[in-house]
Design a binder for these strands. Structure first.
Lengths: 213, 213
DNA sequence: CCGCATCCCATGTGATACTG
DNA sequence: CAGTATCACATGGGATGCGG
């Protein structure tokens, strides 16, 4: 478990020793959305081997980034205050990587937690502030996401709820946010499948969540 | 060389595919200071094996983060505009890791490039703005660093120059910046060895460059 | 089931040596 | 100087097992 070190004494090398191992920041990303159980983390990171997940959780715990907490009989992993301070790092990384998104490959998935952080990354409060409060219901496979925008506030939660626009979508939704795909074409090509509500609100969605290359 | 992928389609996973491999962000960190030759990068990362350095440089080039540029007969590596956009990521990581710096171990070194980025991370422009322009000369082993603060501007360059305070130091200088070590104790314990100039300016230095846990 | 631990193999990494 | 080549070893990936 000895964190592999870089032989340097500095802030960046120290940070990379603590959270620079493979998968570590993806675990942090999901925990930034909320506390998660072991199996929830595993579900959100479909390709992580179980031994690696277990190892990372122990390392991140030793690093003071997260803690195991017994919540009413079940164990959940949650970020410590210090771990939550990684949010600017994760958002900055997300914004940077967002600009290099190519086309989604077939085996690539998006999970509720990953898209939640992508929404936070791409959220433009200054745009949203000028728009009326809006609730979007996004269906990803069999998971529902309720995205509520009210002024400069953004709230993303799992599950269903009353929405001004409800749609089913997949990885392609990110291409709508990056501007690669117009709202009309997203609907026409089936990347976004409007389930109910005002489909014209998809334009507002694309304006509210936008990060250009 | 196929970047190992995480099987997810999202900004953070994409970023980690491009710059998440071991050593990659440390190379970026040093290149954020300025273009560097292969041997300069190797010197700044004493523990990186040469084959890993060569591999990472190729990967980062393929990722559009840096480019090989022939500058008057010699080859230098420099960040592309897209690579330079990693600066917020590196600074955020540095600020976070800075708070988890323990005591420097004997084998740990600080390099001119690493401390330059640490100085940028810890620089407090709002504090500096209220202070008179000051030049510090820092000697790290056999390398000199000239740190000039003028209002909200910070300029760190290698080499010598006129300084209001010149001192020799080592890894412990970061503990002065984190507040773990007072300026008086830094001088008393030899962590900072004043070579010339007004030693009282070390207090100003510690105030100008400060990042608390 | 959930939360891991074990096993095995492929790949990445590290140290040293070597070359155009 | 700017990298390759080689090889031993550590780590990651995937399947499977297993106790609570």
């Amino acid at each position: 478990m000895a964190a592999r070190d870089y032989g340097q004494f500095g802030g960046i090398s120290r940070a990379l020793e603590l959270v620079g191992e493979r998968w570590a920041l993806l675990i942090v990303r999901d925990l930034l959305v909320g506390p998660r159980r072991y199996s929830e983390l595993a579900a959100g990171l479909p390709r992580i081997p179980s031994n690696i997940l277990a190892t990372r959780l122990k390392e991140l715990q030793a690093a003071g980034v997260l803690r195991r907490a017994p919540y009413s009989r079940v164990i959940v992993y949650e970020l410590t205050p210090y771990g939550r301070e990684l949010e600017p790092v994760v958002l900055a990384l997300g914004a940077w990587g967002f600009k290099a998104l190519g086309d989604p490959r077939d085996e690539q998935v998006i999970t509720p937690d990953s898209i939640t952080m992508d929404l936070r990354t791409a959220f433009r409060p200054e745009v949203a502030a000028a728009l009326p409060a809006t609730a979007y219901g996004a269906r990803l496979g069999d998971e529902g996401l309720l995205i509520r925008v009210d002024g400069e506030r953004l709230d993303v939660s799992r599950g269903e709820g009353p929405a001004d626009l409800a749609f089913a979508t997949g990885p392609g939704i990110l291409r709508l946010m990056s501007g690669d795909l117009s709202p009309e074409r997203a609907i026409a090509t089936g990347v976004v499948d409007v389930l109910s509500g005002r489909s014209d609100l998809l334009v507002r969605f694309a304006n509210t969540f936008h990060l250009a290359a």
